[in-house]
Amino acid sequence: MSDTLRDRSRAPRPARFSRLQRSLHWLMAVAVIAMLFIGVGMVSTVSPAYVPLLTTHRTLGIAILVLAVLRLAVRAARGTPPLPVDLPRPMKIAAKLSHVALYGLMIMMPLIGWAMVSSAGNPVLLLGGVQLPPILPANGAMHAALWKAHAALAFCFFALILLHLAAGLFHGLLRRDGVFESMAPVSSERRREAPVMSESATRSRRSDDSA
């Protein structure tokens, strides 16, 4: 992971995330936020919705795992736009670390969930009747540790996403430095017409990234 996240200073870097990268980002943003809400919602109810919510939770969680691996592969192949040259060094470091943590959680949370259900000795049933194999043998103490980790990391994940969201909006609304636009879901044609910043300005301001 650290390898793909490291600066490849000599390689030419794109001005924006590719369409595929942006699609994956926003699709997964919706999916992860949905997962967090489904998670805390389902464990606090005894209504009939509990069972389908849990099945949806397992299924969407595994889908996130698959998409996260795909996304890292796309990232390794395509690279990322550089951060603005004038972004203070601590902010660059914070941005990178938070992205490492977000990727880490997108992979760890589903794996811990899958391992937790496995170690409980319960079948890993997904929507459509698909059943995944266990990834750990049944073990009560292991289950307990994973259960606690899954819940604690879920709350860290939510906090980090709020920070990330605030930072994204800070770039988009206050700094207006092209960072938000690099991930914005709108097409580049529309973006060029937007008054925020021209394509060349974006590129020049984001051309050097030596954090």
């Binding site: 389902m42 919705a49 849990l54 009560g140 307990a144």
Partner: peptide, 26 residues
């Protein structure tokens, strides 16, 4: 599969909580 009986879902939620707690207290 489950019917319109509301108990199995409620039991599943309560049993999971009981299981989580008792395995934590092994």
């Amino acid at each position: 599969s489950l019917s319109d009986d509301p108990f199995p879902a409620a039991r599943s939620a309560a049993y999971a909580r009981s299981f989580n707690l008792r395995t934590s207290e092994w």
